Amino acid sequence: MIVRIMGEGQVRLADSHLTELNKLDDELLAEMENGDGPGFRRTFDALLAKVRELGDPVPDDSLEPSDLILPSPDATLDEVREMLSDDGLIPG
C-alpha cells in the first residue's frame, strides 16, 4: 500500500502493519472525540512516526497513486477531523 503524508511524500507500507497502525488510529479517534488536544497531538505524531518507521520511502520522481492520504504533521485537530472516515484515518 502507498501512503502519502501531505507535505512530505509517500512511503510503501506492507498491509501487515495496518493492525499496529489501527491501534494508534483508534487512540487518536478517542482523543479527538474527547477534545483532548495534547493527547491528539501526541498520538498523531506517534502515528506519523510509525508510518515513517515501517514504510519504505517512494522516490520523489515516482508517480504512484496513493492508497491512503494522511494529514500533514502540522495539521490541527479540526483539520484532521475533516479528513476522518467512519474508520478513522487508517482503514480497517
Rank of each mutant, 00 (worst) to 15 (best):
residue 23 K to H: 11
residue 48 L to K: 01
residue 35 G to W: 05
residue 76 T to E: 09
residue 78 D to I: 10
residue 9 G to S: 12
residue 46 A to I: 02
residue 56 D to P: 00
residue 92 G to Q: 09
residue 25 D to Y: 10
residue 71 P to A: 13
residue 61 D to N: 08
residue 26 D to E: 13
residue 25 D to T: 05
residue 81 R to E: 01
residue 58 V to Q: 14
residue 25 D to F: 11
residue 78 D to Q: 13
residue 79 E to I: 11
residue 34 N to G: 00
residue 87 D to A: 12
residue 6 M to Y: 01
residue 91 P to Y: 10
residue 63 L to W: 15
residue 75 A to N: 08
residue 63 L to E: 15
residue 42 R to E: 12
residue 85 S to C: 05
residue 5 I to L: 08
residue 47 L to S: 04
residue 23 K to Y: 07
residue 55 G to Q: 08
residue 11 V to S: 00
residue 90 I to A: 04
residue 27 E to C: 06
residue 62 S to G: 01
residue 34 N to K: 05
residue 19 T to E: 12
residue 76 T to D: 06
residue 31 E to Y: 15
residue 21 L to W: 10
residue 34 N to H: 06
residue 63 L to N: 13
residue 54 L to W: 11
residue 45 D to M: 05
residue 71 P to T: 09
residue 62 S to N: 10
residue 35 G to E: 06
residue 75 A to C: 04
residue 6 M to N: 06
residue 22 N to P: 00
residue 69 I to R: 10
residue 69 I to G: 02
residue 87 D to K: 09
residue 70 L to A: 07
residue 43 T to S: 13
residue 10 Q to Y: 12
residue 18 L to E: 14
residue 80 V to L: 03
residue 30 A to N: 04
residue 28 L to M: 13
residue 44 F to I: 02
residue 30 A to L: 13
residue 35 G to T: 09
residue 41 R to K: 07
residue 75 A to S: 14
residue 81 R to T: 00
residue 21 L to M: 13
residue 52 R to P: 05
residue 11 V to L: 01
residue 71 P to E: 13
residue 28 L to S: 10
residue 71 P to Y: 14
residue 4 R to L: 13
residue 50 K to I: 00
residue 42 R to C: 02
residue 48 L to V: 08
residue 48 L to F: 05
residue 51 V to I: 15
residue 40 F to H: 00
residue 46 A to V: 01
residue 39 G to R: 05
residue 67 D to Y: 09
residue 11 V to T: 01
residue 42 R to L: 09
residue 22 N to L: 09
residue 56 D to R: 08
residue 67 D to T: 08
residue 17 H to E: 15
residue 39 G to F: 03
residue 43 T to I: 15
residue 49 A to Q: 13
residue 28 L to N: 08
residue 87 D to S: 13
residue 6 M to H: 04
residue 42 R to F: 08
residue 47 L to H: 04
residue 11 V to Q: 03
residue 7 G to T: 05
residue 26 D to W: 02
residue 57 P to M: 11
residue 56 D to F: 03
residue 18 L to K: 08
residue 70 L to Q: 03
residue 84 L to I: 00
residue 37 G to N: 08
residue 36 D to E: 14
residue 28 L to K: 12
residue 10 Q to H: 09
residue 58 V to T: 15
residue 1 M to W: 15
residue 10 Q to P: 10
residue 20 E to K: 10
residue 18 L to N: 12
residue 54 L to M: 09
residue 59 P to M: 09
residue 43 T to H: 07
residue 31 E to W: 14
residue 32 M to N: 01
residue 4 R to K: 06
residue 79 E to W: 05
residue 4 R to G: 04
residue 9 G to W: 04
residue 68 L to W: 06
residue 66 S to T: 03
residue 66 S to Y: 04
residue 15 D to F: 05
residue 78 D to V: 12
residue 79 E to N: 11
residue 22 N to K: 09
residue 73 P to H: 03
residue 79 E to A: 15
residue 38 P to V: 11
residue 50 K to Y: 00
residue 72 S to D: 07
residue 69 I to P: 01
residue 36 D to Q: 09
residue 51 V to E: 03
residue 12 R to K: 14
